[in-house]
Design a protein around this nucleic acid. Structure first.
Lengths: 155, 155
DNA sequence: TCCTGCAATGTTATAATGTAACAAATCGTG
DNA sequence: CACGATTTGTTACATTATAACATTGCAGGA
């Protein structure tokens, strides 16, 4: 079950959250979020650059990375470390820790928020006297749809 | 609590496991494993290259990456996605899924094997009909030692 | 032993991802 | 409008990783 949120909704939500938080969702940042939200797949920073090149032919990497840094800090996008790519957050309106299910076959990504996972991980960390700050939890495998049809739709 | 296993032990274990499995722990691969095992910190691929340059002045990236691919496939080293770096596996002799605690201050890495974490994550995945293959579970924060002394020993 | 086939390594070049450093523009505010 | 702070532009480069093809080395059978 990939991508529930339509792009326009994601932007609206981001507008509201940034307004409430007193931070600026500039055009640049909105455009980057829009590109990510419009995609059914995780986008790399350079994919995003390509997507924005239509509007901004001279866009350079630092611009994209800066926008991504902002969006991540505000919890509006997540980075998938194992793909070097970015996805829109499905529930940016409340704080949470996410886990990601990444399908090897179709490339779709599903965002989970399992309290059990976060809880047991933090428990295990605390048992070693470790104080968690940021968590990266990603599972690569096959999604329900691809398991069902047994094919490899998108390489 | 970082790095329990001395490098020589790690090599011995790797020798044995590879023999049992009928795969070849070549000099190249052993040297890479040795470099990783000798370090108290995760090493990047290019760090490993530097470490091997003494013995092999002309070593190139593909050599290192190929050895790393092999060692990962055999469960002898793990890749830390959030650091783009590699550590030796602390328990290569039996199959397991690991979680990593990465200290922001001192850079040390602790390898966990919490059945609870793996179990709850796989449960959450299965609840979505997802079949897990590979898991990346990394926690960045502060380790017990750094919390205790409140300083930042190693940048 | 020698050949042969496959696995491993060497070599060159380049792709993909990410950042440093400083200049210019823009925004909100007094 | 002028000011300071934030944001963006721009150039150059650092870091991580892989493609492609040549060469070497190793094991097993003729």
């Amino acid at each position: 079950m990939p991508k529930t949120q339509p792009a326009s909704k994601a932007i609206q939500m981001a507008e509201r959250l940034c307004r409430e938080r007193g931070v600026r969702l500039t055009n640049q940042r909105r455009d980057v979020l829009a590109a990510i939200s419009a995609s059914t797949r995780p986008l790399g920073a350079y994919d995003i650059m390509e997507a924005l090149r239509e509007k901004q032919p001279k866009i350079a990497p630092p611009t994209v990375y800066r926008a991504l840094d902002f969006l991540q800090a505000e919890g509006l996008v997540h980075k998938l470390e194992s793909l070097h790519a970015y996805v829109g957050c499905q529930h940016p309106d409340h704080p949470h820790f996410s886990q990601f299910l990444i399908c090897n076959d179709c490339g779709d990504v599903d965002e989970l928020h399992s309290a059990g996972v976060t809880g047991s991980l933090d428990d295990a960390a605390h048992a070693r006297g470790f104080e968690p700050d940021h968590r990266t939890i990603e599972v690569v495998g096959r999604c329900a749809r691809c398991l069902a049809q047994g094919s490899k739709p998108a390489p």
